[in-house]
Structures are given as C-alpha cells and as structure tokens.
Amino acid sequence: MHISEGVLSAPVLISGSALAAAGTVLGLRRLDLESIMPTALLSSAFFVASLVHVPIGPGSVHLVLSGLLGLTLGWACFPAILVGLFLQAVFFQFGGLTILGVNTVTMAAPAVLCCYLFRRWLDKPGTRPGAAFTAGFLSILLSSLLTALALAFSDEGFLAPAQTVIAANVPVMVIEGFITAFIVGFIAKVQPEILQLRSAS
C-alpha cells in the first residue's frame, strides 16, 4: 500500500501533500481532550499493523487498519494516519518523506468515506459486525484504487497497476474486514466511549 519514494511525478506529490494537509487540518480541528488518547492509541495500532505481513497472494502485503481508524476517528484519522506513516518512514523506511502526503491521502480518504457510509450502522449491535467488515474491506479496495490512480498520473498507466494492486490486496481486504469487525466489537464491549455510540449497547 505504501508507494515508494522516487516513483511518482512532482505534480502528484504536490497535490497529494496539499490534500493531506487539508484533511489533517480538518481532523485536528475535531480533536478534543476526550479523543486525543483514543486517536494516539489507534495511530499506534496503525503504526505497528504495517509489520503484520500477510503471506498470501502474489505480492507482499500487510495489514493497514485504515477502515478501523476511519470508523472510530472520522476526520481525525487523517492526522493519526499521517503521524503513523511518518514514523513508519523514519523507523522502518516504508514509503518515504516526500511521498508522505500521497500515501496519507490514499489511506485516509477512503477511511473517512467509510466513516460517513457505515458509522451509523455501528449503533445497533445487530448491524455492527457487518458494517465494520464492509468498512474494513471497502477502505482497502478504495485505497488500492487510489494508489493505482496515483501511479497512473505518473506514467504507469491505470488498468495494469490497478489490477495488480487490487489482486495483491484481496487477501488483505478480507482479513481487514474480519479484524475490523472483531476490534470494533471488542471496543464496543469494553470501551464504548471510544466509538461514541448513540444508543446503549
């Protein structure tokens, strides 16, 4: 999911950074005293999730957890993912510093969309697992599409990379779906304040 340094053209890098900055400002505005610690906790989860390697499929893929961050944090997943990616770039040499903006957008934008689409279904215990699974699945699918789009704007064409990126990430989509459903269920049980559920569960 992380695009490496030196692959994308300058216009893509600049517009990615601009979009990431806008999303981060929006996200930081919504951070209040209550949500700072959950945000840092989920950012930590995102930071280490990239080390969990999924040994299936043709490529080399790992967990992302962006769907989980989107569902629990909403717009605040932008700063959470940005910081997580920054630390991954510095400590693990994943991605890179110049490409931070593009990678942030490809992972955080689908997460925010999933928050708008599925957040409301988390309130009822009946629809919760399904909604969380779909959010986890869809966020990776959309991230793959955005990654392919970013590559397309820098000359690799769109269809071929889109196919390979999506094919490589199909196992991740399914696994992310299950993990998101499991963690959301777990948080709802032990720490429902993080999810800010509207009705008592």
Binding site: S4, V48, S50, L51, F92, F94, F186
Partner: peptide
C-alpha cells in the same frame, strides 16, 4: 482490557514481517 488489546497488537509484529523492496 485495553491493555490486553494493545499487548496483542504489539506482539503480533514480533512473529510477523513487513514489506519494502
């Protein structure tokens, strides 16, 4: 419970690996 969840997340990567070319 939260500490357990965090511990599980922390221990996962020790057994697993990551990707970078």
């Amino acid at each position: 419970h939260l500490v357990i969840l965090l511990a599980v997340l922390l221990l996962l990567p020790l057994a697993a690996q990551a990707h970078k070319l």
